[in-house]
Design a protein around this nucleic acid. Structure first.
Length: 1196
RNA sequence: GCCGGGAUGGCGGAAUUGGUAGACGCACGGGACUCAAAAUCCCGCGAUCGAAAGGUCAUGAGAGUUCGAUUCUCUCUCCCGGCACCA
């Protein structure tokens, strides 16, 4: 038997393919395209291990099939080459990262080549190439140069950002600051996770569980100014667009969880500190307005005019501007009352007019003495004046109200607030003039685009006057904003908790309102010292400190509640504050227990039988409402409980009974237990959770019952027992049930619920149910109560619907050398200035020392010659940004570059992108489903928004995403260098050949599951390949082909074709093995099967297939030769084996012709001897016939 | 704790809409060839009772739906992955 010289032919074909460019993709092709992608590898010094082979070879098989089908296939490869391991290795060995990278790439490239992976090497890219870095930096500058338009739901150039007139008025610097606040790439100080070992800031994603993802070191917190990217703006789109892509379901779920959308409400809890306030004016209009605004949010603030406060009006010398006027008015009454005095002044400013801020109204009056005119004359004059401006300026002019408020307290302290209400002046006239606000008829509110006279009072308050009202509220109280997903529990709020870092805490401390400052500060310091590790440690005891002196008001019921700080509330989620509902939230419950805070049930579990159930409410029967109890009675010395078995109704429950008029639950339960069971000496132990509601048909009373029920636990003191009255026990027996049988014994949901409460001791109910003890919400189901309470909050200005995401903005700065420099220059005069495009790429300085600094600054900061530069805008001296980008940057767009890898005018030619995108299949590891996948989807959407990626490509880069399982070491553990269990593919390829390696990798198990490596398994596929090799010596017979063999051949085509499409490679290999075994058994390969079989084999074992293909006399490569097609008529043979079951058990099989009719089948099988013996003496009940498969004879 | 996914021989795993459980491969046992070994080929290989024919039991455990359940439903146990004080 000839040896199979795989070493010779594998090398031969690998070189031939390279020479022939067999796997090259052609962008100009008219053929349908197929873009298959694997995650490009990081060129590590260790090279590839066998696990890497799985995705590479799997997608190689898939793309080879598509190529053979005549499609224009792109299967590219590149290197994600920036990164810490290379940098650290280079530092350690005194090398340059660029050289380390080059060496590693060469090695891994050789490995891939030797495995016969059909990559299009002409498209190879490397993220560290300056030609690639250029475009990564260019795209960063696009983020810098963009803002997110919420209305249009897309990114737009910053030049298109509408800047409010109030900002424009403040000059260039203010405009720049405003723009900086809206850029998608922005700089912000944030607490970062700092790895003291790697000396690098980590993204939240890289510091999960409080340890560094790379080295496992416990991370520290540091404050640092970092570049951030506003990925949160895309949260909704990243979430919703998952519906339009074909990802494995588990991948979608992970993405959804990571984005973490929560639907709820934002609620404002006022912390009022002013109860009476005097307005330093007798202007009725102003007073009315203030009263209206305040009463809507702080109803118990009493607003007095000077007269009402018993103060006589004084002449006030007007100041030079609004602030001075307001201040002067307030000061005029200082010392004359103990009440706070509010001075206010309001001005009307017209954009572009030469307004006099000191006396704006005089513009309208044209210097006429105000005192000589009546109110209506003033109004008329002003009306005419403003209208003339609007008309002259083309109908519409930007204008705004500016209000200034000063509250002066008796102790001399002041609180100030301003509000700005933008409006548009028009020459249209609506409604009547308001003598106190004389331009009323002429303006339109910018925020809602409605003319003043058309506004409802509601709109006036919530839209037009919102800034005004907010300012007033701010003067009379502080308010705490909380986010909750369960606004329906608002009546159950018993305290508030702020994150220790919350800004309000600082504010209150500064105002001297917190009475226990030292305790609060001590707690905050302790929290700051904690690592994330400690803070999130499991089953951690709740800690916290009350803010003494701060009392909040529950807006829905006016209850006064305490305010705490505690580290279980996170500063960076929601509003950094929560309303605590201990009865319905586990964390709040634990906290309330620890600090003895009140717990108030506001949701009752609700039980009702589903429609059609025997216990379901019956429409034709009356409903009787009752207070009831359900009691579990523990045996006096055994672990068992007294229960009721309702003989005729199928119910198993605790002792159930009604509460009579004037009775409490314990008395009622005691009475019922004695009456129904006869046991006498009871001791009450505790209540089981709160009340529950239950609606059902009470068969024993023939009526519907709405029961409000309470669970109780009793203990029997002794066995004293008196037989109960027969009347009491006609419906049920009292039975003893062992504790461990209780759960399966109890048949009623409510009984099980109470039992669980008994066992777990859990008094906190976090589920949905009916609102109770909740005023106007009572007995509404949770979903409805949420709606109702939210509308109430909106109506009363205390809150609104709110959606919150877990997703945080992307920390984009790394303080390391081996990454893309961020192409920004810091200029003292101009701020952050982007590098002009013609200065890209900004390359790393070629320096000897690039070790990280302990200060947390990038090593680049030490390279002064590189750092010092000139400002591209003003030409003055400036410094370069020294942070570099994270690895995720280059990998967020590499799939676009593959489409046109050498382009130096664009990141890729739009035509190439249109042709190739989206990616037909993207395969990668589950470890990248949260980060890389999300970042790159986001990045792609952004480019798409800006039309850099053409519309035709779609806004999702990956049409289909799949993931592969790990290859584990032989013992089932993860392969790792430290464990020394890594299998090197080079050894495998040398010893068994590339084809055997590939085939085994594909055969070892389901593609998406983790499977341990097994060297013995490799022997199996080697034997298979030997068989294939030796098939050559089997004579191909031209004579008639055995029908069963031909049918098997067509089945194999079907199985392999479909299997590859579904990435079920293991079953494809097994199908090929079955076919080869059949060829061998037959001693022939039918000529008509010969080529097709090799074609089916080619994607898996490309070398041997090519070798045998050429041995058959073919001149061109098998890999572009076509793909066999099965004939559906040949899939089945004419006869089949009918399975005969009797009562579901297989008793016989019989050959049948496919065209036998059902009748014939049935009569034929009944006469079979085996059937006879099984059926004899029994009555035939039914015969089930499944065509072409089986018959099931059912007998009695 | 929450969200996913899973559990099938000694092992990796098959069994697309409920229809012959254990395909294919490994390991193991027996045989042929050989002086012998390797390689190769042939046979066997879930458990159990039986001389055999054949029966019975078996897809993590328990229940249910069905003529029929590895597949669907419920409860539980264990394993893997992800998230984790996210209000």
């Amino acid at each position: 038997m000839p040896q199979r010289p795989y070493n010779d032919y594998e090398k031969k074909w690998q070189h031939q393919w390279e020479k022939d460019q067999t796997y090259r993709a052609d962008t100009c092709s008219k053929a349908p395209k197929f873009y298959g992608l694997i995650e490009f590898p990081y060129p590590s010094g260790e090279g590839l291990h066998t696990g890497h082979g799985r995705p590479f070879i799997g997608i190689d098989v898939l793309t080879r099939k598509h190529r053979m089908q005549g499609e224009n296939v792109m299967y590219p490869i590149g290197w994600d080459a920036f990164g810490l391991p290379t940098e650290n290795f280079a530092i350690k060995h005194k090398m340059k990262p660029v050289d380390v990278t080059r060496k590693n790439v060469a090695n891994m490239k050789r490995q891939l080549f030797s495995q016969g992976v059909g990559f299009d090497w002409s498209r190879e890219i490397n993220t560290t190439d300056p030609s690639y870095v250029k475009w990564t930096q260019w795209q960063f500058l696009k983020f810098f140069d963009s803002w997110y338009d919420e209305d249009a739901q897309r990114a737009r150039p910053i030049s298109e950002l509408p800047v409010p007139s109030t900002i424009l008025l403040q000059g260039d610097a203010a405009v720049r600051a405003y723009q900086d606040d809206h850029r998608l790439a922005f700089k912000a100080t944030s607490t970062i996770n700092w790895c003291p070992k790697d000396k690098i800031g980590l993204a939240n994603e890289e510091a999960q569980g409080g340890v560094c993802e790379r080295c496992g070191t416990v991370v520290e917190k540091r404050e640092k100014e970092q570049w951030m990217i506003r990925i949160t703006k895309y949260a909704d789109r990243l979430l919703n667009d998952l519906d339009n892509v074909d990802y494995l379901e588990k991948i979608k779920i992970q993405q959804r969880n990571w984005i973490g959308k929560s639907d709820g409400a934002q609620i404002e809890f006022p912390v009022q500190d002013v109860s009476k306030i005097v307005l330093a004016t007798n202007n009725v209009g102003k007073v009315a307005r203030v009263k209206k605004c305040l009463s809507s949010i702080l109803p118990n603030v009493e607003v007095l005019t000077l007269k009402e406060a018993g103060l006589s009006s004084q002449d006030v010398v007007e100041g030079s501007d609004l602030e001075a006027n307001a201040r002067a008015k307030a000061s005029a009454y200082a010392g004359k009352t103990d009440l706070p005095i509010m001075g206010m002044d309001t001005g009307f400013f017209i954009d572009g007019e030469d307004a006099d801020p000191a006396a704006p109204k005089r513009n309208a009056l044209g210097g006429v003495d105000e005192s000589t005119l009546s109110q209506s004359q003033i109004a008329e004059k002003m009306d005419a004046y403003y209208r003339s401006i609007a008309t002259r300026r083309g109908g519409e002019v930007d204008a705004y109200w500016k209000d200034f408020f000063v509250v002066r307290f008796a102790d001399g302290s002041e609180r100030i607030a301003t509000s700005i209400r933008p409006v548009v002046l028009t020459d249209k006239r609506f409604g009547e003039m308001d003598i106190f606000f004389p331009v009323r008829g002429l303006y339109r509110v910018k925020a809602n685009n409605k003319y003043i006279a058309e506004q409802t009072e509601e709109e006036e308050l919530t839209v037009e006057l919102a800034p005004y009202r907010d300012a007033l509220v701010r003067l009379c109280s502080t308010s705490i904003q909380v986010f909750t997903t369960r606004p329906n529990t608002l009546f159950g709020v018993t305290y508030l908790v702020l994150a220790p870092e919350h800004a309000l805490v600082d504010e209150w401390i500064n105002q001297g309102r917190v009475k226990n400052v030292s305790a609060v500060e001590a707690y905050r310091a302790a929290v700051r010292r904690e690592t994330d590790m400690e803070r999130t440690a499991e089953r951690r005891e709740k800690t916290g400190v009350p803010l003494e002196g701060m009392i909040a008001t529950n807006p829905i019921n006016g209850e006064r509640i305490s305010v705490w700080i505690a580290d279980y509330v996170l500063a960076n989620y929601g509003t950094g504050a929560v309303m605590a509902v201990p009865a319905h939230d586990e964390r709040d419950f634990a906290f309330a227990k620890k600090f003895a805070l009140p717990i108030k049930q506001v949701v009752a579990p609700y039980f009702s039988a589903p429609e059609g159930h025997k216990d379901a409410v019956r429409a034709d029967r009356p409903t009787v409402r009752r207070q009831t109890i359900q009691a579990f009675v523990k045996h006096w010395n055994e672990d068992k409980y007294l229960c009721l078995d309702w003989k005729h109704f199928g119910w198993h429950s605790g002792v159930i009974g009604g509460i009579d008029e004037g009775e409490d639950a314990i008395t009622a339960a005691t009475r019922e237990i004695i009456e129904e069971t006869g046991y006498q000496h009871l001791r009450f132990v505790k209540l089981l959770g709160g009340e529950i509601h239950k609606n059902f048909f009470a068969a024993h009373k023939n009526e519907n019952r709405y029961a409000v029920s309470v669970g109780l636990l009793f203990e029997l003191v002794d066995g004293a027992h008196v037989d109960p009255e027969p009347e009491q026990i006609k419906n049920h027996d009292a039975v003893w049930v062992a504790a461990d049988k209780m759960r399966s014994f109890l048949s009623l949901n409510d009984a099980v619920y109470m039992w669980d409460a008994l066992i777990t001791g859990n008094e906190c109910f976090a589920g949905d149910g009916l609102a109770v003890h909740s005023g106007f919400l009572n007995e509404l189901p949770t979903w409805k109560a949420k709606e109702e309470v939210t509308s109430w909050l909106m109506e009363h200005g205390y809150g609104k619907k709110q959606i919150t995401f877990k997703l945080r903005d992307w920390v984009f700065s790394r303080q390391r050398y081996w990454g893309e420099p961020i192409p920004i220059v810091r200029c003292a005069k101009c701020g952050h200035v982007p590098l002009p495009e013609d200065q890209l790429p900004l390359t790393l300085p070629d320096v000897a020392v690039y070790e990280p600094t302990d200060t947390g600054e990038s090593p680049l900061a030490n390279v002064r010659s590189w750092v010092e530069t000139t400002c591209p805008r003003c030409g003055g001296p400036a410094e370069r940004e020294t942070d570099t980008m994270p690895n995720w940057a280059g990998s967020s767009w590499y799939f676009l570059r593959y489409c046109d890898p050498q382009n130096d005018r664009a990141l890729a030619d739009p035509e190439a992108l249109k042709y190739w995108m989206p990616i037909d299949l993207y395969n990668g590891g589950m470890e990248h489903t949260t980060l890389h996948l999300l970042y790159s989807r986001f990045w792609h959407k952004f480019l798409w928004d800006l039309n850099i990626v053409p519309r035709e490509c779609g806004n999702e880069p990956y049409a289909r995403r799949h993931s592969h399982g790990l290859v584990l070491a032989e013992g089932g553990e993860k392969m790792s260098k430290s464990k020394g269990n890594v299998v090197n593919p080079d050894d495998v390829v040398r010893e068994y050949g590339a084809d055997a390696f590939r085939l085994y990798i594909m055969f070892m198990g389901p593609f998406e599951q983790s499977v341990p490596w097994d060297t013995n398994g490799l022997e199996g596929v080697r034997k298979f390949l030997d068989k294939v090799w030796n098939l050559g010596s089997i004579v191909a017979r031209e004579s008639k082909v055995e029908p069963s063999l031909l049918s098997l051949y067509h089945q194999t085509i079907k199985k392999v074709s479909e299997g590859i499409d579904r990435l079920q490679f293991n079953t494809c290999v097994s199908a090929l093995m079955i076919l080869v075994n059949a060829f061998q058994d037959a001693g022939e390969i039918p000529t008509e099967c010969r080529d097709g079989f090799l074609q089916l084999l080619a994607p898996f074992a490309p070398h041997i297939a090519e070798e045998l293909w050429h041995a058959l006399g073919h001149k061109d490569s098998i890999h572009r030769s076509g793909w066999p097609i099965f004939d559906p008529n040949l899939l089945q043979e004419e006869t089949f084996e009918l399975v005969i079951q009797i009562n579901g058990k297989v008793r016989d099989r019989v050959k049948m012709s496919r065209d036998t009719s059902e009748e014939e089948v049935k009569t034929q099988i009944m006469s079979l001897p085996k059937v006879q013996t099984w059926v004899e003496g029994k009555t035939l009940k039914q015969i089930v016939y499944v065509k072409g498969k089986l018959v099931n004879i059912v007998v009695d």
